[in-house]
């Protein structure tokens, strides 16, 4: 009997263990992708540090918790006594966002239900593209619509002196938020497995019963996430509300009152303040406040939408 021939006496063959081109490309891509992945975190921390630093002087100096949150007087340039109360600004933002949601929620839910449950084939594709197109319209264009189209309509229809008010901005912001909410809500509805629909249909549920009793409950987390994203959008929107609210400091008592939003205040005033002044720093403190609010809203939305995927 012959023994099988051996390549080397020790049996070690390390020729496959080479750091070749593929190996280096793989490593390089890994590093690049990693950097891309963490860049978002770096940026968000950077932004937070920056606005905190700018607002810090105010927070430790002139900042008066009670005045800041509970005074409706925002008089940063008063000669006798500067006051930095954001209550009216918060009320402005909240009223506009609230009205916007009243308009956007039914619209976007209706649109999402139609696209996901009723429309089919070409209609569906066409609607989806249209909705996405709508979401991409720049906010300044919406602001322009508020200023040039909505304003005279409101003045004439309701016989009020000014058409730049909560109603105008609420409608504009509602129309702005609706497309993105529709898109997310539609995703949530599409994520409901078809076998749920089939099971309900087989039981004799009508189409509306299938949606109302089965699909909506199954998608409720995703739908709530969509609404919260809309709210976040409302809070953060600047240009359109600056143009459509009338930009006057007011705690609104009706939808025909002009108001001013937190974001719009920063946008309008920051360019005219001396860097480092109390006013400048107070604006950054508003920035911190907005940052925290939107962060909480987005985080809540995200956690809720995630919850849906797991369940």
């Amino acid at each position: 009997m012959e023994q099988p021939a051996q390549n080397t006496s020790s049996g070690v063959d390390a020729s496959f263990d080479q750091l070749n081109r593929d190996w280096y490309i793989d490593k390089a891509v890994q590093v690049l992708v990693f950097l891309g992945g963490i860049s978002a975190i770096v940026f968000i921390i950077g932004i937070f540090v920056f606005i905190s630093k700018e607002g810090f002087g105010f927070l430790v100096g002139d900042f008066n918790f009670k005045e800041f949150f509970f005074s409706p007087n925002w008089r940063p340039t008063s000669e006798s006594k500067e006051t930095f109360g954001i209550l009216a600004l918060v009320a402005g933002t909240a009223s506009v966002t609230g009205l916007a949601m009243l308009i956007a929620i039914p619209f976007s839910l209706g649109a999402a239900i139609f696209i996901a449950e009723f429309a089919s084939g070409k209609t569906r594709e066409f609607l989806k593209i249209t909705v996405e197109l709508l979401a991409a319209i720049p906010s300044v264009v919406w602001g322009f619509i508020g200023l040039a189209i909505m304003n005279p309509i409101i003045i004439e229809t309701f016989n009020v002196p000014v058409g730049l008010n909560v109603l105008n901005a609420g409608v504009i912001l509602g129309l702005m938020a609706a497309p993105i909410m529709t898109s997310i809500a539609e995703d949530a509805l599409k994520a409901v497995p078809d076998r749920y629909r089939e099971a309900a249909e087989a039981m004799g549920a009508t189409r509306w019963q299938v949606i109302y009793k089965v699909v909506l409950p199954a998608a409720k987390n995703g739908l709530l996430g969509a609404v919260l994203l809309g709210v976040g959008r409302g809070f953060g929107e600047t240009m359109a509300v600056l143009m459509a609210t009338g930009h006057s400091i007011n705690i609104p008592t009706s939808v025909f009152d002009s108001v001013r939003a937190l974001t719009a205040t920063i946008a309008a005033e920051l360019g005219e303040t001396a860097a480092g002044s109390s006013h400048y720093q107070a604006l950054f403190t508003i920035g911190i406040f907005l940052f925290i609010i939107t962060f909480i809203i987005n985080l809540a939305a995200d956690l809720i939408v995630r919850g849906v995927r797991k369940g």
Partner: peptide, 12 residues
């Protein structure tokens, strides 16, 4: 009444 091959517990 219909019973499908794979169980469908509705999320209720």
């Amino acid at each position: 009444g219909v019973v499908f091959p794979l169980p469908v517990g509705l999320p209720l």
